Simulated scan of single mutants.
Amino acid sequence: MHIVVLPASPKTAQSTIRALLADPREPTVTGVYRDPRRASAEFREHPRFNAVQGDMADAQRLDGVCAGADAVATITPPLHAETDPIVKARELAGNVKHAVSAREGKSSSVKRLVYVSSVGAQFQRGTGEIRTNHEAEQSLRNAAPKVVFMRCAYFMENWATALATTLKADPPFFYSVICPADYKIPMVSVRDIGRICAAQLLAAGSVAVPGDENPFIFDLHGPESYSTRDVQEAFEDAMGKQVGVELVQDDQLVGFFAQAFKEPMASLFVEMTRSFLPGGVTEKGMNEGTRIRRGKDTLSETVRRMLGN
């Protein structure tokens, strides 16, 4: 079996490639990079991995890299520098669909397309940056005989941003936009995302179950939901010291994200954050989920791994 991962640079893509190369079924894997030299030595040295040049913005080039693939995994890359990231996400996903779909004058070997999406992607508006996932999902429908949308919960590794900054302070602390401190939301590790994505890709060509939908959609959560307080305790346990937390309240969100992003991305992150807080548009569906599947990694395990413990 041959599997293409595009783009191959995001952490979720790297985790997927790692899981595929470790699988006993021994698939061959092609990772698509703007610059193949960015592929890690871990992958480049593997006999079943090939890094190729390609760009999701170049539809013609993607046609070639997807040729001969049994399954394709795709991810919307970070679009923080785009003036209209929503439109760009739709365009990139459309290019992927063009590359993997059979059409007049072109056959396709691709049996399954797996898109790493986000909880809340079912909503057309009110979810900020998650709207890029919504647009991608709309573009990718019917792209292959089997299309899978993995709607992933909040990444546990998002907390890694504090490792190089505020957790090095004396005393250590971190910022959290998840308020109140005891409010729990689903979280999942990037490692589990890679594992589940790889399993979905390796199922390409399996016999369809009567009545099975296309696209097949499920939410991916960790073993349980977590709060800011749980994150604080995980850091304290892993570091062996007290760790403070600075809650970013609703009226502080605009200024907080303006320090990290330019417009329009800053405003999209504000809207996204509000969408999953109490009363937000995604709160109920996010916690109830759609065909919830659960990863294995706990928050404590993931924090320790991030800290190198």
Rank of each mutant, 00 (worst) to 15 (best):
His2Glu: 13
Val4Met: 05
Val4Gly: 01
Leu6Glu: 02
Ala8Ser: 15
Lys11Pro: 00
Gln14Val: 12
Ala19Thr: 11
Leu20Asn: 03
Leu21Phe: 10
Ala22Arg: 14
Asp23Leu: 06
Glu26Ala: 15
Val29Gly: 03
Gly31Pro: 08
Pro36Leu: 11
Arg37Asn: 13
Arg38Gln: 15
Arg38Glu: 14
Ala41Gln: 15
Glu42Asp: 15
Arg44Gln: 15
His46Glu: 13
Pro47Gly: 13
Asn50Trp: 10
Gly54Val: 10
Gly54His: 07
Ala57Val: 02
Gln60Ile: 08
Asp63Val: 12
Val65Arg: 01
Cys66Pro: 01
Ala67Ser: 14
Ala69His: 07
Asp70Phe: 07
Ala71Ser: 12
Ala73Cys: 15
Ala73Asp: 08
Thr76Pro: 03
Pro77Gly: 06
Pro77Ile: 07
Ala81Leu: 11
Pro85Ala: 09
Ile86Ala: 09
Val87Asn: 09
Lys88Asp: 04
Gly94Asn: 05
Val96Ile: 14
Val96Trp: 02
Val96Thr: 09
His98Glu: 09
Ala99Ser: 09
Ser101Lys: 02
Ala102Met: 02
Arg103Cys: 11
Arg103Tyr: 07
Glu104Pro: 00
Val110Met: 06
Lys111Ser: 03
Leu113Val: 01
Tyr115Asp: 01
Ser117Val: 03
Gln122Thr: 10
Thr127Gly: 09
Ile130Pro: 01
Ile130Cys: 06
Arg131Ala: 14
Asn133Asp: 12
Glu135Gly: 05
Ala136Asn: 07
Gln138Cys: 11
Gln138Ile: 04
Ser139Ile: 00
Ser139Phe: 00
Arg141Ser: 10
Lys146Glu: 14
Met150Arg: 00
Arg151Phe: 07
Cys152Lys: 02
Cys152Ser: 14
Tyr154Gln: 06
Phe155Arg: 01
Met156Tyr: 05
Thr161Glu: 14
Ala164Gly: 13
Thr166Leu: 06
Lys168Leu: 13
Lys168Trp: 04
Lys168Glu: 11
Lys168Ser: 07
Asp170Leu: 02
Pro172Arg: 02
Phe173Gly: 03
Ser176Val: 13
Ala181Arg: 05
Asp182Trp: 02
Tyr183Cys: 08
Tyr183Lys: 03
Ile185Arg: 06
Ile185Gln: 04
Val190Ser: 06
Val190Ala: 08
Val190Tyr: 03
Arg191Ala: 15
Ile193Gly: 00
Gly194Phe: 14
Gly194Val: 12
Ile196Arg: 11
Ala199Thr: 09
Leu201Gln: 05
Leu201Arg: 06
Ala204Asp: 08
Val209Ala: 11
Glu213His: 12
Ile217Thr: 14
Phe218Val: 01
Phe218Ile: 02
Phe218Ala: 01
Tyr226Ala: 04
Ser227Ile: 09
Arg229Trp: 08
Gly240Gln: 12
Lys241Tyr: 01
Val243Gly: 07
Gly244Cys: 09
Glu246Val: 15
Leu253Ala: 04
Ala260Arg: 13
Ala260Ile: 02
Phe261Ala: 08
Phe261Lys: 10
Phe261Leu: 10
Val270His: 02
Glu271His: 09
Met272Lys: 11
Thr273His: 03
Arg274Lys: 15
Ser275Asn: 10
Pro278Gly: 10
Gly280Ser: 08
Val281Phe: 00
Lys284Asp: 13
Lys284Val: 15
Asn287Thr: 13
Asn287Asp: 03
Glu288Thr: 15
Ile292Arg: 08
Lys296Ser: 14
Val303Ala: 08
Met306His: 05
Met306Tyr: 03
